[in-house]
Simulated assay, not measured.
Amino acid sequence: MNKFDEASLSKVPQVTLAFWIIKVAATTLGETGGDAVSMSLNLGYAVSSIIFIGIFLVAVVAQVRAKAFHPLLYWVVVIATTTAGTTMADFADRSLGIGYAGGSSLLLALLIASLGIWYRSAGSVSVAAITSHKVEIFYWVTILFSQTLGTALGDWMADTNGLGYEGGALVFGAGLALVAAAYYFTKISHTLLFWFAFILTRPLGATVGDLLDKPLDQGGLAFSRYTASAVLAVFIIACILFLPQKAGSHSGAKAQAD
């Protein structure tokens, strides 16, 4: 590999169909896995959040220190953000007593602040412009907030609007379809659309996860949280092994190399 190739490669994957398939599966695992620890093990939202934030910190340090893109490591960090996001959102919504609206508003403010500070510091929030450790840290903090917000939105939609888990999944799936249409047929910023899609995949995964493991009388399918989590983990590993996962390229890298 020549110097330009090395300089232009990113430590995050290309945003392809495979990326979104694994992302949705990872967010669904985040819901079932987070609930398994906080509810099935009866550890509660606060303790579970501390555990998953600790796992996230260890994983993200390994990711930032890595010299190249490693698909398994990357998705371990994403899954850590989804599990932490599940318990953190539940803690904000329920344990703090501020409800779904209050929790979602707080998390939206944190996400906007993260993106704003990132943009002010780096001049871009594009995933194609992750060229330093500082920017990579902004990327992961923003993902953590987006995953947590997505969980709160999914619970809010499913629990308080009478749609149930299936209806909530359909609403967020339709939202993603609109984002995809905007990507192909409008001139809306692809960076903006990426973050919209990234946020929307989280409540989609949250509602699908709840559909899998909630009791029948609550509109779920009553699968064991452990079983659902194990099946999802195997599916994600299979996708990483058999679906193409290539490092993205830094925007402007060629111009800088020239």
Rank of each mutant, 00 (worst) to 15 (best):
residue 109 A to K: 00
residue 103 G to H: 11
residue 99 G to Q: 10
residue 69 F to P: 10
residue 110 L to S: 07
residue 117 I to Y: 15
residue 74 Y to V: 06
residue 126 S to H: 07
residue 68 A to K: 15
residue 128 A to C: 12
residue 126 S to E: 08
residue 73 L to W: 09
residue 128 A to N: 14
residue 77 V to R: 02
residue 78 V to H: 03
residue 81 T to Y: 07
residue 107 L to Y: 08
residue 87 T to D: 03
residue 83 T to P: 03
residue 96 L to P: 00
residue 94 R to A: 10
residue 74 Y to L: 06
residue 95 S to E: 15
residue 80 A to Y: 03
residue 121 S to N: 13
residue 69 F to S: 08
residue 110 L to T: 02
residue 119 Y to W: 14
residue 95 S to D: 15
residue 114 S to H: 10
residue 100 Y to T: 04
residue 82 T to G: 04
residue 85 G to H: 04
residue 89 A to H: 06
residue 111 L to Y: 12
residue 129 A to V: 04
residue 128 A to Y: 15
residue 98 I to P: 03
residue 77 V to C: 06
residue 90 D to A: 06
residue 70 H to T: 08
residue 101 A to E: 15
residue 114 S to L: 13
residue 72 L to C: 04
residue 84 A to N: 02
residue 92 A to W: 11
residue 90 D to N: 14
residue 70 H to P: 00
residue 99 G to N: 07
residue 101 A to R: 14
residue 70 H to K: 09
residue 105 S to N: 03
residue 118 W to G: 00
residue 105 S to P: 02
residue 94 R to Y: 14
residue 95 S to Y: 11
residue 78 V to R: 02
residue 92 A to K: 00
residue 83 T to M: 15
residue 69 F to E: 09
residue 123 G to F: 05
residue 77 V to S: 02
residue 128 A to F: 15
residue 68 A to G: 11
residue 80 A to C: 12
residue 111 L to V: 02
residue 96 L to E: 00
residue 84 A to V: 01
residue 87 T to P: 04
residue 114 S to Y: 10
residue 72 L to S: 10
residue 95 S to M: 08
residue 123 G to L: 03
residue 101 A to M: 14
residue 120 R to N: 08
residue 81 T to F: 05
residue 127 V to Y: 12
residue 101 A to T: 13
residue 105 S to D: 01
residue 102 G to K: 07
residue 94 R to N: 13
